[in-house]
Simulated scan of single mutants.
Amino acid sequence: MSLVDQLKDQMKVAMRAKEKVRLGTIRMALAAIKQVEVDTREALTDEQAIAVLTKMVKQRRDSIAQYEAANRPELAEAEALEVQVIETFLPKPLTEEEVAALIDATIEQVGAASMADMGKVMGALKPKVQGRADMGAISSLIRAKLN
């Protein structure tokens, strides 16, 4: 079952259970995916849908930080609930050991020797970890290994 189909099924479940927050978040995710499909004029693959959901999680985490800085805990809590709902549709996150192993394997695979090869490593690694790890953290780990 594709990710979009899972979202639609869970939307129906949330409607029946009268879970307003979950329903609203799932509808928002489906709308974001549909917007990308309309913009690109093609149906999204699961990997592309995961990228959309990952972007949504990142945006919400940024909002949480801003709301907490502005002393608005009720808004930060609402965003945190949305993050929890979206994360249920993302793949299981990678552990630190798995990330380190993937980085080492990718560095060997592309033959990276210096910081000049950072783009090659990131380009090869991104599809493998999309939605499963924070690309900012991975970038700093690659920098540490290449220096």
Rank of each mutant, 00 (worst) to 15 (best):
L94R: 06
G119P: 08
L141C: 00
L90C: 09
E79H: 07
L146H: 03
L81A: 11
V4L: 12
D117F: 09
L53S: 02
Q109R: 13
K58W: 02
V13Y: 03
D117S: 11
L3F: 06
A133D: 06
L53N: 04
A133G: 03
R22L: 03
I142V: 15
D46M: 02
E97I: 12
L125Y: 01
G123N: 06
T106R: 02
M11R: 14
I26C: 00
Q6W: 10
R132W: 01
R16E: 15
K12V: 07
K18Y: 10
S140I: 09
A17Q: 12
K55T: 12
F89H: 03
M135R: 07
E47Q: 13
N147I: 06
N71V: 15
S140Y: 03
A78M: 08
V4Q: 11
A133L: 04
D39I: 04
M118Q: 08
T88D: 15
V110N: 05
F89M: 05
I33G: 07
I138Q: 04
T54M: 01
A144C: 01
I142A: 06
D104F: 06
G123E: 12
A100D: 15
Y67K: 04
R27S: 10
N71R: 10
A100G: 01
P91K: 05
E68M: 15
A112G: 11
Q66H: 13
K92C: 06
L146Q: 07
K92R: 14
V99D: 01
G131S: 05
E42N: 09
A70M: 12
A144M: 10
G131V: 00
N71Q: 15
G136N: 15
